[in-house]
Write a protein that binds this DNA or RNA. Structure first.
Lengths: 190, 190
DNA sequence: CCTACCGATCGGTAGG
DNA sequence: CCTACCGATCGGTAGG
């Protein structure tokens, strides 16, 4: 692992633990057994680290949702694949995922604008799937926006509680979550 | 409105906008057209403000979930009432709600411990409802913990996107969310 | 990768 | 409610 990547890894652990604003360059340096000033031989700024975390995940997720919308025909299948990929991606690197969900707002200037645009694109990708489901008669109609937000909320909330040593694997969580979204808790229709 | 409450209100606006760690006492003072030092005639510390925001909401929600579990008989009714109260409470004061969901982790010492305990109690309240629903044969079995987390995620996510001037009232959102949780998106059973 | 250091800003106090 | 100020800490730079 390159020194830069080691810094990234140490940093995202501390960003998750204390928050981006509170975790200091000196904290990160201390984890790396070096002085804060030395970090700048490998990185440009504190924000560069945040940038790499946030856009690393944003790009991965956006590529995936595009692919899912291209490849699969059936809306249920599309939703299941999107959920699976989202959960697996977040669980692959929980520290980065937590920071991605919480601390993107500390990006500034153009980076912040770009991130918001990227997030809107992803939201649109999910909305497209829900719309497709409505047209197929698979989903209830007239709650696109609402359903989209509810789906995203349950997808991202996983960074709050998922533990690597837990009972359920990311794949199993994705399946349960898809079932939940597609049929809900109730056995019969109201 | 008392001076202390005015400070609280200004503070939670800024905590939501910039995050607790980043918003400074000088920022709050500036909003109040006074000097930072003068704030301390009304409050003890920055953390006291955070404490009041977090426990104000935590206590309100915990009282409500207890009441719901006491009063109502049917699990579906219980869930609908809990969702309604949760959404309405968060939407009543969106700034405070946002801080409550995001910035409680900046509490320290005993306050942090107490908050976590309070949050666990609320989670247990929701779990109790889901368990009741299982026993009544209303909900699928064997996904208590999972369902509880998914419900809480969609309840709290509302602080991310709700706007006072939006199309849906809190009551309407609560109804849609309850429907979503109880029956899901799909028209027929898989 | 280090020592030494910069200007800025932080939460908070003293004293009036 | 203010002026004046404290010690601590911040992200980052200079120079080696």
């Amino acid at each position: 692992m390159s020194r830069k990547l080691e810094i990234q890894t140490a940093a995202q652990r501390l960003f998750k633990k204390h928050g981006y604003a509170v975790a200091s360059m000196r904290d990160i340096a201390s984890e790396m057994d070096m002085e804060a000033a030395s970090l700048y031989n490998h990185i440009e700024s504190k924000e560069e680290i945040l940038y790499n975390i946030c856009f690393g995940l944003a790009n991965k997720l956006n590529n995936a949702i595009e692919e899912v919308n291209d490849i699969y025909f059936n809306s249920e299948e599309k939703l299941r694949m999107a959920v699976k990929f989202h959960i697996e991606t977040l669980c692959e690197d929980l520290d980065a995922a937590y920071v991605f969900v919480h601390d993107w707002k500390y990006l500034t200037g153009q980076a912040l604008k770009d991130f918001k645009a990227s997030r809107d694109m992803y939201e649109n990708g999910i909305r497209t799937i829900v719309e497709g489901g409505e047209k197929e008669g698979l989903f209830e109609e007239n709650n696109k926006g609402f359903a989209t937000l509810t789906i995203l909320s349950s997808l991202n909330w996983i960074v709050e509680w998922y533990k690597t040593e837990g009972r359920l694997s990311p794949k199993e969580i994705a399946e349960k979550l898809s079932d939940f979204i597609l049929t809900g808790l109730k056995k019969e229709k109201l």
